[in-house]
């Protein structure tokens, strides 16, 4: 089944703001085996000029995954999740995420195409801080294998 191209431009706002916590950053940093102290030690983070511990560059995939799950769960989009692999990923930062951020995320279907029988679904998640400042945009392309 082909992905429904009429869904390009559709937006999936996260149902509630995402709170970035020290505990979640620590869990993520440990899962990628990265011992950098700015992820776990507030003193080291402050010495480096940050208000609190910061998140690893790929941490916002959590927001992108949640947004893609919302989109893929939409039966009319026509994505068979059992055939999905990750095609590409990007992050464009205004600033790093830090503990204490409360982020509003909106995921938009940016593109739908077919290549060699595979479906390609491009999603873009924009995360904004409580004061309206842009923090990061995460782009994700999912390949739905034929």
């Amino acid at each position: 089944m082909a992905i429904n191209a009429e869904y390009v431009g559709r937006e999936y706002p996260a149902p509630e703001p995402y709170e970035v916590t020290r505990g979640k950053i620590r869990e993520f940093a440990e899962a990628i085996n990265d011992p950098n102290p700015v992820y776990v030690d507030p003193g080291a983070a402050k010495a480096a000029g940050y208000p609190d511990v910061i998140a690893p560059p790929t941490f916002p995939v959590i927001l992108g995954m949640a947004g893609s799950a919302q989109a893929v769960a939409d039966p009319d989009l026509g994505v068979d999740f059992s055939r999905v692999v990750h095609g590409d990923q990007s992050f464009h930062y205004t600033r790093p995420l830090h503990a204490g951020d409360v982020l509003t995320a909106v995921t938009r279907i940016a593109d739908v195409r077919t290549l060699g029988g595979n479906g390609m679904l491009t999603l873009e998640t924009v995360a904004t801080a409580a004061d309206g400042e842009h923090v990061v945009t995460a782009g994700m392309m999912l390949v739905v294998r034929a």
Partner: peptide, 9 residues
Amino acid sequence: PGCVVDYSV
């Protein structure tokens, strides 16, 4: 790690 502006793969 906070110096990353763009990262794509």
